[in-house]
Lab assay of single mutants.
Amino acid sequence: ETIMEVNLLKGPKGLGFSIAGGIGNQHIPGDNSIYITKIIEGGAAQKDGRLQIGDRLLAVNNTNLQDVRHEEAVASLKNTSDMVYLKVAKP
């Protein structure tokens, strides 16, 4: 597993990826991690090219996303300014 830091500039459609996982909404049984499950065509993440489906999202800005509820992860992604710092684990 490789840890990678990505600074992503939000586009008109936001960050351009979808997530799944978290406490109460496990993407993988027994694993509370938050995973990237979709990269949106023409979105910021696709244009940047570094994020991939299956990457594990560890942090957004200063918010640690390990062992959080799905709703908390979504809220932390929404409550960001235009430049967003992401910390991901690549499988």
Rank of each mutant, 00 (worst) to 15 (best):
E1Q: 03
E1T: 13
E1S: 08
E1M: 09
E1C: 05
T2H: 07
I3W: 05
I3G: 06
I3T: 08
M4A: 11
M4S: 05
M4G: 05
M4L: 06
E5K: 15
E5Y: 08
E5C: 05
E5Q: 14
V6C: 04
V6N: 01
V6R: 02
V6D: 01
V6A: 04
N7D: 13
N7V: 04
N7H: 12
N7W: 04
L8M: 06
L8V: 08
L8T: 02
L8S: 01
L9M: 07
L9S: 14
L9E: 11
L9Q: 09
K10S: 05
K10T: 07
G11M: 11
G11H: 12
G11V: 05
G11F: 04
G11I: 06
P12L: 08
P12V: 05
P12A: 12
K13G: 07
K13S: 06
K13R: 09
K13I: 10
G14K: 03
G14N: 04
G14L: 03
G14T: 04
L15T: 08
L15R: 01
L15K: 01
G16A: 02
G16E: 03
G16C: 01
G16Y: 00
G16R: 01
F17K: 00
F17M: 08
F17L: 06
F17T: 01
S18M: 15
S18W: 15
S18I: 08
S18K: 06
I19K: 00
I19T: 08
A20C: 10
A20S: 11
A20Q: 09
A20E: 14
G21E: 03
G21I: 02
G21L: 02
G21A: 03
G21K: 05
G22A: 02
G22I: 01
G22C: 02
G22V: 02
G22M: 02
I23F: 07
I23V: 14
I23A: 08
I23R: 11
G24M: 10
G24V: 09
G24Y: 09
G24I: 11
G24S: 13
G24Q: 13
N25D: 10
N25A: 11
Q26D: 13
Q26W: 06
Q26I: 06
Q26K: 05
Q26R: 09
Q26Y: 05
H27C: 05
H27Y: 11
H27Q: 08
I28L: 14
I28Q: 11
I28P: 06
I28N: 10
P29T: 15
P29E: 09
G30V: 03
G30A: 08
G30Q: 06
G30C: 13
G30S: 13
D31L: 03
D31F: 03
D31R: 06
D31V: 05
D31G: 04
D31H: 06
D31E: 13
D31C: 10
N32L: 03
N32Y: 05
N32C: 11
S33K: 04
S33A: 10
S33L: 04
I34W: 03
I34G: 00
I34A: 03
I34V: 11
I34E: 01
I34L: 09
Y35K: 03
Y35H: 04
Y35C: 04
Y35S: 02
Y35F: 10
I36W: 00
I36K: 00
T37S: 12
T37R: 07
T37E: 06
T37Q: 06
T37D: 09
K38I: 04
K38Q: 12
K38G: 14
K38F: 07
K38L: 08
K38R: 14
I39P: 01
I39A: 01
I39V: 10
I39R: 01
I39Q: 02
I39L: 11
I39D: 01
I40V: 13
E41D: 15
E41T: 15
E41C: 06
E41W: 05
G42F: 08
G42D: 12
G42R: 08
G43N: 03
G43D: 09
G43W: 02
A44F: 05
A44S: 12
A44C: 11
A44H: 13
A44R: 08
A44V: 08
A44N: 12
A45E: 01
A45T: 09
A45I: 10
A45W: 00
A45N: 01
Q46H: 07
K47Y: 15
K47L: 13
D48M: 03
D48T: 04
D48I: 02
D48C: 07
D48G: 04
D48P: 01
G49M: 04
G49E: 05
G49H: 07
G49P: 07
G49Y: 02
R50I: 06
R50G: 12
R50Y: 04
R50A: 10
R50T: 14
L51G: 00
L51I: 13
L51Y: 00
Q52T: 09
Q52A: 07
I53Q: 13
I53C: 13
G54K: 04
G54E: 05
D55T: 11
D55E: 04
R56V: 15
R56P: 01
L57R: 00
L57C: 03
L57M: 08
L57Q: 01
L57P: 00
L57W: 00
L57H: 00
L57Y: 00
L58G: 01
L58S: 03
L58K: 09
L58W: 05
A59P: 00
A59M: 09
A59C: 14
V60E: 00
V60R: 00
V60D: 01
V60Y: 03
V60K: 01
V60P: 00
N61R: 02
N61L: 02
N61G: 14
N62D: 15
N62H: 15
N62C: 05
T63N: 15
T63C: 05
T63R: 13
T63M: 08
N64S: 07
N64R: 11
L65N: 01
L65A: 02
L65D: 00
L65H: 01
Q66P: 02
Q66K: 11
Q66D: 06
Q66L: 06
Q66F: 10
Q66Y: 08
D67Y: 10
V68N: 05
V68S: 06
V68W: 06
V68F: 09
R69D: 06
R69W: 11
R69S: 15
H70F: 06
H70K: 07
H70Y: 14
E71A: 12
E71K: 04
E72K: 11
E72Q: 08
E72A: 14
E72R: 09
A73H: 00
V74W: 10
A75H: 10
A75K: 12
A75F: 15
A75S: 09
S76F: 12
S76N: 04
S76D: 11
S76C: 15
L77G: 01
L77I: 15
L77T: 05
L77P: 00
L77Y: 02
K78W: 07
K78I: 03
K78S: 06
N79D: 15
N79I: 15
N79R: 14
N79S: 15
N79G: 12
N79M: 13
N79F: 09
N79H: 14
T80P: 13
T80W: 06
T80G: 10
S81K: 12
S81W: 07
S81F: 12
S81M: 11
D82E: 03
D82G: 09
D82R: 11
M83E: 08
M83S: 13
V84I: 13
V84L: 13
V84E: 01
V84Y: 08
V84W: 03
Y85K: 07
Y85N: 10
Y85W: 13
Y85Q: 11
L86P: 01
L86E: 01
L86V: 06
L86H: 00
K87N: 09
K87I: 02
K87V: 10
K87T: 04
A89E: 08
A89R: 07
A89C: 14
A89I: 10
A89M: 13
K90G: 10
K90A: 04
K90R: 05
K90S: 06
K90Q: 15
K90M: 12
P91L: 04
P91I: 07
P91D: 08
